[in-house]
């Protein structure tokens, strides 16, 4: 038998090349298609992100209206408000984590299948990065708008346009950036590491994983 053992000099990889790296545009295209064909599932995941950020933005927007520092009740309400904002951040963190982890782990088998068909690890991760990033940005944006609009409407109903000065508008823009930033980062933290872990597994381990 040993006489038949094929030699293995460095040129013995005859016929085997390096798998091509697909361009980013291809990953973008597949990710978009992924969101589209999983539309209902994507919406549910996105609403998890949206609700978390909406709660956060609602509480933060309430804090943007100037308060009368001589009014003791208003000051203590404002203190409660900052605790509420921290709570809101926690709630939205857990909510988004839950939604994204679920949506990634239920696709471990798909990751294993794609690897069997010749997908490179980093391509699989790229798909999930783009998908999670897009959902994170769009859902956080929608969430911020939802929370902000509801708070502003409530304010208009009770106090009219009082306090809606230029400082309020500037602060709103800052809050928008903060909310979208936080929402997107949490989404990516929840989605990319597990996708990366699944992509690095031997395909059979990813295929076998049950949830």
């Amino acid at each position: 038998m040993s006489a038949e053992t094929p030699d293995q000099p460095s040129h013995a990889k005859a016929g085997i090349q390096k798998q091509i790296q697909l361009p980013f545009s291809k990953a973008w295209q597949i990710s978009l298609q992924g969101i589209r064909i999983r539309w209902m599932r994507s919406l549910i995941t996105a609403s998890g992100i949206l609700l978390g950020i909406a709660f956060f933005s609602f509480v933060r927007t309430a804090g943007l209206f100037p308060i009368d520092m001589t009014d003791k009740e208003a000051v203590s309400a404002s203190n409660r408000q900052s605790w509420l904002a921290i709570m809101a951040l926690l709630v939205c963190f857990v909510g988004i984590m839950n939604a994204m982890l679920m949506s990634v782990t239920e696709r471990f088998k798909e990751i294993g299948t794609m690897k069997c068909l010749g997908a490179l690890d980093n391509f699989v991760v790229k798909l999930f990065f783009i998908e999670a990033g897009l959902m994170g940005v769009l859902a956080s944006l929608a969430g911020w708008v939802t929370g902000w609009v509801i708070m502003v409407l409530l304010h208009l109903l009770s106090k009219g346009t009082e306090g809606m000065v230029s400082a309020f508008w500037i602060a709103s823009v800052r809050e928008l950036a903060l909310s979208v930033g936080i929402g997107t980062v949490i989404t990516l933290i929840a989605a990319v590491p597990p996708a990366n872990r699944a992509a690095k597994m031997p395909p059979i381990a990813a295929l076998r994983s049950e949830i």
């Binding site: 293995q8 013995a12 990889k13 085997i16 090349q17 390096k18 798998q19 690897k115 069997c116 068909l117 010749g118 997908a119 490179l120 690890d121 395909p203």
Partner: peptide
Amino acid sequence: QLDARELAYLRC
């Protein structure tokens, strides 16, 4: 002897 990219090529 194959690296990850060559293995992916083989599977593909």
